[in-house]
């Protein structure tokens, strides 16, 4: 059977679109948890780009990078959630604008 590869451009385009969506979402959302989710989307989009590139050059490096990114995302989420818990404990709200002590 003939191999039906997806063109690299499409994959990268998908990764880029996902990244932009995540970025827009971070900018729009006020709820900290949603901002964290959006950051996750951005991270996964970057990971997708790595996979696509790895498949293009038929090397395992892309997969390796994706594992790195996954690990890093997990660590980051645990730290982030811990911080969010603290903010919620102090401010009793999940509104990111509330964490503003600057008189500025």
């Amino acid at each position: 059977m003939e191999k039906h590869t997806i063109p690299v451009e499409a994959g990268l385009l998908l990764a880029g679109t996902l990244f932009m969506l995540g970025l827009l979402s971070v900018l729009i959302r006020r709820n900290i948890i949603f901002m964290l989710i959006s950051v996750e989307i951005m991270l996964n989009a970057a990971g997708l780009a790595f996979i696509v590139a790895g498949a293009r050059w038929a090397q395992a490096d892309g997969q390796v990078m994706f594992v790195f990114i996954l690990t890093m995302a997990a660590a980051e989420v645990s730290v982030g959630l811990a911080l969010i818990l603290q903010i919620y404990h102090q401010l009793k709200t999940l509104d990111s604008d509330a964490a503003n002590k600057m008189k500025g």
Partner: peptide, 17 residues
């Protein structure tokens, strides 16, 4: 310039973008 230090997280992200 002090106005840029609003303390609002989303402005900082916007700045990066």
């Amino acid at each position: 310039f002090a106005k840029a230090q609003g303390g609002i997280l989303r402005w900082y992200v916007m700045g990066i973008v």
